[in-house]
Every structure is written in C-alpha cells, then in structure tokens.
Amino acid sequence: MFIIMLIIILAVGFGVQYFLGMIQIKHFTKNYIDLRSKGRVVIGRKPTIFQSGTLVLLQIDEKDRIEEAKYMQGVTVFSKIKALSGLEGKRVAKLENADLTKHNKLLRNAILDAKRTFNIIQSGGEVEKIPSPMMQAVNRVNSMFTNKGGKKNGYNS
C-alpha cells in the first residue's frame, strides 16, 4: 500500500512540475517573441543544479548594440523574466567583466555566454549544446569509471 501511495504522490508531483514548467516556458516564449519583434535577440544561459539557473535575453540593433535586456534567474519554476538594466547602448561583442560588476556572478556568466554565442554565430560557427546540470553530473561520474588516457584502475597498462 505504501509503495502505491508513493508512486501516486511522485506522479502527481511530476505532473504539477510539468504543468508549472510549461507555464514558465510560455512566459519565456512571450518575452522572447516580444524582443524578437523589435530586432535580433542574443541568448545567454548558465544552467546549474543547486544554484539559481540564469537565462539572459539581449535585444540588439543593426550595429550590435544592446537596446533592451531581460533575464530569468531562479531555482524553481516560479522564476519570471525581469528587466535587466545597465547594458543599454553597449556592444555585445565588446562586453567585459568590468561592464558587469553590479550583477551577480551567475548573471555575469550568462551575459558572457551570450557574448560568446554572439561571437560564434557572427563568425559563422555553430553553438554547441550545453548539457543540462544533471547530464554534467552523469558525465563526471561516467568519466571516473571509464578508461582515460590508456590507464586502467590508476595503473598504466
């Protein structure tokens, strides 16, 4: 009986999480479409497991200057997109850490990721997919157990 109740509780929790996640995605999409209607949009991201995940939207003009910036930062699905001030008029390709001192570390990293993404796209490259925090953890664990550099169990073969 306990196992059935546990399964039901987990299923309901998963359903609520899914529903709230869909609402958050809808909110993000609405803001993205709004910025996209004004011009090009550069997206920066900094996914994490135990800290606030951060997503940045930078709407830029034809001279690659930031006209409007928004961000979403939080641990839960209740995170909302907020206005990000202090970047207006700056060129995306020239953003540096010194320009971002008033922002927290995760937000700075997401903005610098947007710059990196912008530079890759401008040079004709393709942006690599960032693995989710859970996949990063799985990859770290897997790398501890796989054969790296011709070594097995810490000894040369």
Rank of each mutant, 00 (worst) to 15 (best):
L112V: 06
R40S: 11
K102Y: 09
N31G: 05
K80E: 02
S132G: 10
D99K: 04
L20E: 03
S85C: 12
M134F: 13
K38L: 09
G44P: 02
K115T: 06
F118D: 08
F14E: 12
N156W: 02
I25Y: 13
D64V: 04
R45P: 03
G15A: 05
T117I: 08
F28N: 00
K115M: 02
T101G: 15
I66H: 01
L57M: 04
N142I: 14
D61M: 00
A137V: 14
M135H: 13
M5A: 11
V127R: 12
M5G: 12
I43H: 00
F2W: 09
F28P: 00
T29F: 02
V16K: 01
G13V: 01
Q136E: 12
S52G: 07
N156I: 05
M134G: 10
E128R: 11
T54F: 07
I60T: 04
T54L: 11
R65M: 13
T101P: 05
M1F: 09
D61N: 02
G13A: 05
T48C: 09
N97I: 12
N153P: 09
I9R: 14
G89R: 12
I121C: 06
A83E: 12
L57W: 00
G89P: 06
Y18A: 01
F118L: 03
E126A: 03
A98R: 15
K70G: 10
L10S: 07
V16T: 04
H103S: 08
L6H: 05
N119M: 15
E126C: 05
Q59I: 07
L100P: 06
M22T: 07
V56C: 08
K80W: 05
I43A: 00
N142W: 10
E88V: 02
I60P: 05
K63R: 13
N153I: 00
H103P: 04
L95P: 02
Q122R: 05
E67M: 15
D99H: 01
K26W: 03
I60D: 06
E62R: 07
N142F: 10
I23C: 14
M72V: 11
K148H: 02
I25P: 01
K115A: 02
A98Y: 13
S143Q: 03
V42I: 08
Y71N: 04
H103I: 13
A93G: 09
L35N: 00
N97F: 11
R140N: 14
A69T: 01
E67T: 14
A98Q: 14
T76E: 08
I66A: 01
F28G: 01
F19C: 06
K148T: 06
N109C: 15
K94P: 07
V92G: 00
